[in-house]
Design a protein around this nucleic acid. Structure first.
Lengths: 373, 373
DNA sequence: CGGCGTGGTTGAAACGTCTCAACACTCGGC
DNA sequence: GCCGAGTGTTGAGACGTTTCAACCACGCCG
């Protein structure tokens, strides 16, 4: 109870001595200094920080005063060196500039913050080398777990992480096996929703615009194709256009091709693999005097913010982005803390957000001519 | 030189024993295990990791084999508990969904990665409480420094960080005093560039669209006003519209007002405080059959990606975003490592990116009528 | 008055790494 | 055969925290 040390001047002096050798120490008070100032042991200070109810009110208050006076802030490194694991999770995304991922990140952060964890947000830029570098850093930091939209199916770095006991949850990807958690979106359903919507509006010649390299896009195409097959009832109702890239430029390219077709074979609507592509299609149509949606209806995919803000607001398939992030983070936290965690691989259902770009019902004339063509 | 310990089985057995008490240890090999396996001391292993040239090739190779065999990965927490500072910097941005910040982040990350540092990207969402929470975490992590676009002029949390010796660099903000680094953009010049461009094309009645709450927007307005005063030579050549928010909706609102004006007093062009606003103006004009740029020219600000992808590609004032991030990170690193660091407050110059939305030269008739009006 | 439980506090050990003074060995030169 | 100068290697601390067995003082019960 004897206070051997009780004002800041002493602390300063003590530090002057202690830091004689290193050129310029940042004068950071540690738990030890707090203990000295408050006249208690370090154990008690630690208790105040971690189990305040176990400390008598008087002592607690004295320690808290000391903490405030010295501007003490816990040292995470020390904390989690001791604990063996850090209070951080990693999130590795393909493209931080894509609004989709920023929303996912928001969901992740909500859950993490609620659990008192920090998130390290990393951008792989769809490059395997950057992804690997980020995973290395995360491993060194001993993160509690990693959420990742991987660049390739199976990265050895991901496997390495798993093999040392760090949970990894795949984001917006189907699991490659049962021994992992993964959150995904039912893209076949998304494609079907978009196609059904157009069929219902009377469209009978529909374009699908999207290169089929990515599994996700492939799934979307299959959904569209199945719906068209059932709904329109004949094969050539669906035409596929595959621009080089799923960008605005790619959309323009595809739209130019569509405009070039003879009127009798020209689709009256398009499902695009992506909103950027849809925006490109929209621009090119408007430029050539094709009215949207009167002459040509467009449905995008992803429902990015700019879809609603386009010259003609875009109908689009929305993935539950924030929810995707939340769920993934929850699975990760469960896997990290629950010893008998069950892997799960939820698949979210997308929804169709109808806006102006597909609002008009096709006059039945078109249906007939489509039916014959 | 005697190898007391040389195959993985021994390690496993040793761990079985060591981890009897904690329920399920992740079986992570430490520097000590590597030393044991390679038959050297821990000091030597550390040397292999940090000063490989100081170790004989034979030993080095043996240690490296051990590292590979055990899958050893350094523990950052321990590393930087010892070092006193971590190999991480913090980046706190206002809105991670804004493409501007993602580009800035890219610049920051380039520089940080080159210096072997990790970046903790935090999103304050323009909320002071979230900003404070993030800064607390960064403080606990003992980051080497923080780059921040602050929500308010002077946050006590920022000051606390500075007072404990952590460098803080302001991003896209003017410094509030000489004792700090800050990277900013000359927004008055940006406004002037936009206005001069329009004046040069023959416009004599110009609108500025932007609420004047933010200092940045205010600066832009002043630049526009000065240019118009000098170039057009009379006062009412500039009309200011202040929508509630700098969003697409805000732009529409302002455009509706403009369209409502009698033709004789209606501006023929607008400088918008922001690309989102400009996109809104564009949409509303197109919707009312006002041709852009023939009847009305538009210049945006920020040059976000969607500016180029708009229905009519948007002329915009571009800030050197990636460069902004790079420079800020460089200043931070210098402040963190150079003991006699000089604070600096560079101001970047924006450039005008001319696209279709302002491409047409105003017929001289308009100039005359404008001159009289 | 002795024994016992209880609420509060203590101090040392441990986490995994880096640093640094000290030591060992080798090789030339004398 | 001894010395000195390298060149490699070692092992003990230290970093700041948490944990935990041990301890202390106190009041209560019998």
């Amino acid at each position: 109870m004897l206070r051997r040390f009780n004002h800041a001047g002493d602390l300063m002096r003590r530090y002057r001595v202690r830091t004689a050798t290193p050129r310029e120490a940042p004068l950071t008070a540690g738990i030890r200094d707090v203990a000295l100032w408050a006249g208690v042991s370090v154990g008690t200070v630690s208790n105040v920080l971690n189990r305040p109810e176990a400390v008598s009110p008087a002592t607690r208050e004295r320690v808290q005063t000391a903490i405030a006076a010295l501007g003490f802030v816990r040292n995470e490194s020390a904390r989690h060196l001791r604990a063996g694991r850090s209070r951080t999770i990693g999130l590795v995304v393909l493209d931080i500039a894509n609004p989709f991922f920023t929303d996912v990140a928001r969901g992740v952060e909500d859950v993490a913050a609620a659990a008192g964890l920090a998130v390290m947000l990393c951008n792989s830029d769809d490059r395997a080398d950057r992804e690997a570098a980020h995973l290395d850093v995360l491993t060194e930091q001993r993160v509690q777990g990693v959420l990742i939209t991987p660049t390739a199916e199976l990265s050895p770095h991901v496997e390495a992480l798993r093999s040392r006991g760090t949970p990894v949850v795949l984001l917006d990807r189907r699991a490659t096996g049962p021994g992992q958690c993964a959150v995904a979106v039912d893209d076949a359903l998304g494609g079907r929703l978009a196609a059904d919507h157009l069929l219902e509006r009377g469209h009978r010649r529909i374009a699908f615009i999207g290169s089929s390299g990515l599994p996700q896009v492939h799934e979307r195409h299959d959904g569209v194709a199945a719906a068209v097959r059932e709904g329109a009832g004949f094969e050539d109702a669906l035409t596929v256009f595959s621009p080089a890239h799923l960008t605005v430029a790619g959309g323009r390219e595809a739209a130019a091709q569509i405009i070039g077709l003879p009127a009798g074979r020209r689709p009256t609507a398009a499902v695009c693999a992506n909103d950027l592509t849809a925006l490109g299609v929209l621009q090119e149509m408007v430029r050539h005097g094709v009215r949207v949606p009167e002459d040509f209806a467009i449905v995008g995919y992803d429902d990015i913010d700019f879809a609603a803000a386009a010259a003609v607001p875009l109908t689009s398939v929305r993935k539950p982005r924030v929810e995707l992030g939340r769920r993934a983070a929850e699975l990760l936290l469960d896997e990290a803390s629950d010893p008998d965690h069950q892997h799960s691989q939820p698949v979210f259902e997308p929804t169709l957000v109808v806006r102006e770009s597909s609002m008009v019902r096709r006059p039945s004339r078109a249906v007939v001519s489509g039916g014959i063509g």
